[in-house]
Nucleic acid binder design. Structure first.
Lengths: 140, 140
DNA sequence: AAGAATAAAGACTAATTTGTCTTAAAATAA
DNA sequence: TTATTTTAAGACAAATTAGTCTTTATTCTT
């Protein structure tokens, strides 16, 4: 809904990898089984993350992929950006690409606080803190 | 991004109609010119709103469309629902269709407050109050 | 060295969304 | 009545996204 399927698959895969106790090398075939995603399609999606350095891939027997950076250095926004080419920072509720403070669409003022929360969520959520609910975060 | 193009066009059209001083009949050709949307495509999109009663359409010379209900009775969620067949109430950040409190995806807890704000925004924003910013609303 | 396991790459297919074209039906205006 | 203006409807085309298939390159195991 928000992202493409490719983005969703990427996010799910990265979280799965972050959940491994060590930063183990996991074959894409295993990811595809565990997450119930087509193997060949997932391979293509993850290649985009490898190109950007968010994954490291190893060919050959015992090969696979593992995180290319520390979990706290990979945000959801990074993943979306790498796979779909855009981020979640400036989304207009009416789909007007030129909508901004100077040329606001009719929903601009009302939409803005939501937009900000969304942008922050994707930017601030990373593979280290993704489990922490925002409510817990506020309590602390 | 959030909605399909069709949804965005529908929302823009409905807001344009709500902006007319009277609930005037506006030909789709005028909507398509003002909003810079393909006429034939827009016609098909708006037909879906007519079917659900959110628009009334008039054929023939001097024909066009006008709102089918009072502006405060048409929410953004209604429009999205009519055009895309789903609403904004339960969107999982990882695209898992079965994600809920009992079977949460890894992002569930963190995503939930955002999800709620989004759902509320679409439900509570209607063609009467869409101009009022949520910040103004809180101040009142 | 040979075989097996794995990612990479590219061509291809399928599904969905977006958009066009044409004709018909209805209402107004002359 | 006839011409004009408009929505409705359906077939079609184009673009985008999703997914498959096949081959190659690389690495490990034996």
């Amino acid at each position: 809904m928000f992202c493409s399927k490719a983005c969703e698959y990427a996010i799910r895969s990265m979280i799965f990898l972050a959940d491994q106790s060590q930063n183990d090398i996991v074959p894409i075939s295993k990811l595809s089984q565990e997450l119930e995603i087509s193997f060949t399609f997932l391979t293509k999606v993850l290649q985009q993350l490898t190109e950007k350095g968010y994954l490291i891939s190893y060919k050959g027997a015992k090969g696979g992929v593992c995180l290319g950076k520390a979990p706290e250095e990979i945000s959801l926004d990074d993943i979306v950006q790498a796979v779909s080419g855009h981020n979640m920072k400036s989304i207009c509720a009416t789909g007007n690409p030129d909508c901004d403070g100077l040329h606001p669409c009719p929903l601009h003022d009302r939409w803005q606080p939501i937009q900000k929360m969304l942008g922050d969520f994707y930017k601030e959520t990373n593979l280290e803190n993704y489990k922490v609910s925002l409510i817990d975060k506020l309590i602390k």
